[in-house]
Amino acid sequence: NKEKKVFISLVGSRGLGCSISSGPIQKPGIFISHVKPGSLSAEVGLEIGDQIVEVNGVDFSNLDHKEAVNVLKSSRSLTISIVAAAGRE
């Protein structure tokens, strides 16, 4: 599966507009579980089932849900590497 990078700058009070969840035991990782229509996440093409592999240089493969949320909230400017639809297989 091809990795792609998206860049998101949080402007004003707009949030990311997506929710994440941890994958099942047999498929660990952090996946996008919800994308709000019209949100920044939707605008850059994030979709439900995409796996987040890295954010701002932080490897997401071994993070738990709480740590992942903290990384996503730690910066107003995010570089997110995803594997599209990895969670839909």
Rank of each mutant, 00 (worst) to 15 (best):
I30H: 14
S19A: 09
N62D: 13
G23N: 09
K27D: 11
S19D: 10
G45I: 01
S81D: 07
I82W: 10
V55H: 00
N62F: 08
I25V: 13
I20E: 00
K27G: 05
S33Q: 09
S19H: 09
L16D: 04
F7V: 14
L16G: 00
G29S: 02
T79K: 13
V35W: 03
I52P: 01
R14C: 07
E54R: 12
G45S: 01
F7H: 12
D59S: 14
S21R: 14
S33F: 01
S77E: 15
K66T: 11
N1I: 15
S22N: 13
E89R: 09
K66Y: 07
N62H: 12
D50G: 00
A86Q: 14
I20P: 00
L46G: 00
C18P: 00
N1D: 15
V55R: 02
L46M: 11
G17P: 01
L40H: 12
G45N: 05
G17D: 07
K27I: 05
G17E: 04
S77T: 15
F7G: 00
K36G: 07
L63M: 05
S39L: 00
G17V: 00
S33V: 06
L40G: 05
I20M: 04
E43S: 11
L46F: 10
G23A: 06
I20V: 11
I52E: 04
G49V: 00
V83Y: 09
T79C: 10
E3C: 11
I48M: 11
L16T: 03
G87Y: 12
R76W: 04
I20A: 00
D50E: 03
G87M: 10
G15K: 14
E43P: 01
G38P: 02
G87F: 12
I20Q: 00
P28M: 05
D64N: 13
F7L: 09
G38K: 12
G38D: 11
A86V: 11
V44P: 02
I25D: 12
F60W: 09
G12D: 07
V35M: 04
V83A: 10
L40A: 15
N70T: 05
L16P: 03
S22F: 07
V55K: 01
S33G: 05
H34Y: 13
A85G: 15
S75T: 09
D50M: 05
I52K: 02
I20G: 00
K4C: 01
K2W: 05
L40Q: 11
V55M: 04
G87V: 11
V55I: 06
A85S: 12
G17W: 01
D59V: 06
G38Q: 08
V83W: 10
G38L: 06
G45V: 01
S33C: 06
S33R: 07
G87K: 14
L40K: 15
V55T: 03
F31Y: 13
G45K: 02
T79E: 15
L16S: 03
L40N: 04
I25G: 13
S21A: 14
P24S: 14
R76Q: 15
G29A: 02
F31K: 01
S19L: 08
N56I: 10
S22Q: 12
V83D: 07
G49F: 01
I80D: 03
A84E: 15
K36Q: 15
K36R: 13
K4F: 10
K36D: 11
K5L: 05
R14D: 13
D50P: 00
G29C: 03
G49L: 01
K27Q: 10
G29R: 00
R14E: 14
I30A: 03
K36A: 12
S77H: 14
G15D: 13
S21T: 14
V44W: 06
G87P: 13
I80S: 03
A84S: 14
D59G: 07
V69G: 15
F31H: 04
S13Y: 06
G15S: 14
S75P: 12
D50Y: 01
I20T: 05
R14A: 10
E54C: 10
K66N: 13
D50T: 00
P28H: 08
K66D: 14
G15P: 12
S19G: 08
V55N: 02
S77W: 06
G15R: 09
S39I: 04
I80A: 04
G49K: 01
V35F: 00
S19Q: 13
H34V: 05
L10F: 03
G29L: 01
I48Q: 12
S39D: 03
S81K: 13
S33Y: 05
K36E: 15
R76F: 05
V55A: 08
I80T: 04
S19I: 08
V53I: 12
S22I: 09
N62E: 12
G29H: 03
S81T: 15
L46S: 01
E43I: 05
V53F: 08
K2H: 02
S21P: 01
I52W: 02
